[in-house]
Simulated scan of single mutants.
Amino acid sequence: MAKDKRLAAGYASFDRTKTYTLTEAIKLVKGNARAKFDETVEISMNLGIDPRHADQMVRGLISLPNGTGKTLRVGVFARGPKAEEALAAGADVVGAEDLAEKVQAGEIAFDRCIATPDMMALVGRLGKILGPRGLMPNPKLGTVTMDVKGAVSAAKAGQVEFRAEKAGIIHAGVGKASFDDDKLIENIRALADAITKAKPTGAKGTYLQKAALSSSMGPGIRLEVASLAIGAAE
């Protein structure tokens, strides 16, 4: 009941038929983030794509300038010196067949999965488990690599993966409600820029169609798409 009242009060604080600049929306989102924890600020973007076509898939990684404020758990499939390198870089779970057995048993204690190339025959057998969770390592995303230290460090530093869902919508956390407005603006525009640069060749018409900003427990606020561009007027 308290959550419903809080959400109703949030919707009453702005005009739901209006679109807001990024600066205005951030102030509204932060003002409505009244949960007892530091809520995540989340953005959703509707893209003019059809992800059912291979040439219109949008996916990538970006290191947000100010991090996400979230502690990401990183799992690494590696052996020998590379396993030691992963642990030294701060990986939470490292292993080979032993880690695969844990995953098969439903014990998935990581939010990002990295693997060295020689481990992909083993990891590939876990595709039906890791794939639907968006955890399958991918060379194009830099999560299949010999640079284990760099990949783990980037993930821990606030790297965000973005991926269009079936309806062509991308959801991503861009920071915490406790972040300064300027830091949230910088993060959001960096993400929007990365998504814009990832525009597939098969996409026709308007690419970035709609966007909305919210906190974990707060209402969604419609954004003026033009205000997402780097260098846009405040």
Results as ranks from 00 to 15, higher is better:
Gly75Pro: 02
Gly48Met: 09
Ala89Trp: 09
Thr71Lys: 05
Asn138Lys: 11
Ala121Gln: 14
Pro51Glu: 13
Lys156Leu: 05
Ala155Arg: 11
Thr21Tyr: 01
Leu141Ile: 11
Ala212Asn: 05
Ile188Trp: 01
Ser44Ile: 00
Gly173Ala: 13
Asn32His: 06
Leu99Cys: 09
Lys30Thr: 04
Asp147Arg: 02
Met57Trp: 09
Asn46Met: 11
Asp181Asn: 14
Ile49Trp: 12
Ala25Ile: 01
Ala226Leu: 01
Val74Asp: 02
Asp4Thr: 09
Pro81Thr: 14
Gly231Leu: 02
Gly95Ser: 13
Gln159Asn: 03
Pro219Arg: 08
Lys128Ala: 15
Lys176Leu: 07
Pro139Gln: 06
Arg79Gln: 13
Gly173His: 06
Leu184Glu: 03
Gly124Cys: 14
Lys5Thr: 08
Ala9Leu: 09
Arg16Pro: 02
Arg133Asp: 02
Lys5Pro: 01
Asn46Val: 13
Asp118Asn: 13
Met146Gly: 12
Leu7Cys: 00
Arg125His: 12
Gly168Pro: 05
Glu84Val: 14
Pro117Met: 12
Phe37Val: 11
Ala96Phe: 14
Val123His: 10
Glu107Asp: 12
Gly158Thr: 03
Ala233Val: 02
Thr143Ile: 10
Leu191Ile: 05
Ile43Gln: 13
Leu126Tyr: 06
Ala177Ile: 01
Arg59Phe: 05
Ala177His: 06
Lys27Gly: 06
Asp55Ser: 03
Val76Asp: 09
Glu39Ala: 00
Lys199His: 04
Ile129Met: 13
Val144Gly: 12
Gly90Tyr: 14
Tyr207Arg: 04
Met1Ser: 14
Asp181Pro: 00
Gly168Asp: 10
Asp50Lys: 14
Leu184Phe: 04
Ile230Glu: 05
Lys176Glu: 02
Lys166Thr: 00
Gly67Asp: 00
Pro51Tyr: 14
Lys149Glu: 06
Ala83Cys: 13
Arg79Glu: 09
Ala100Glu: 15
Leu208Trp: 13
Ser178Leu: 03
Ile169Met: 09
Ser214Ala: 14
Arg163Val: 04
Lys199Asp: 00
Thr19Pro: 00
Gly173Pro: 00
Arg125Ser: 15
Thr40Gln: 05
Ala155Pro: 07
Val74Lys: 09
Val41Asn: 05
Val152Ile: 12
Thr196Glu: 10
Val174Ala: 00
Gly168Ser: 08
Ala9Asp: 10
Glu161Asn: 12
Ala100Leu: 15
Ala151Glu: 06
Val94Phe: 12
Phe110Ala: 09
Leu64Gly: 03
Ile221Gln: 07
Ala9Glu: 13
Gly150Asn: 08
Val148Gln: 08
Gly31Ile: 08
Ala121Glu: 15
Met146Leu: 14
Glu84Ile: 15
Leu122Asn: 11
Gly80Lys: 14
Ile108Pro: 03
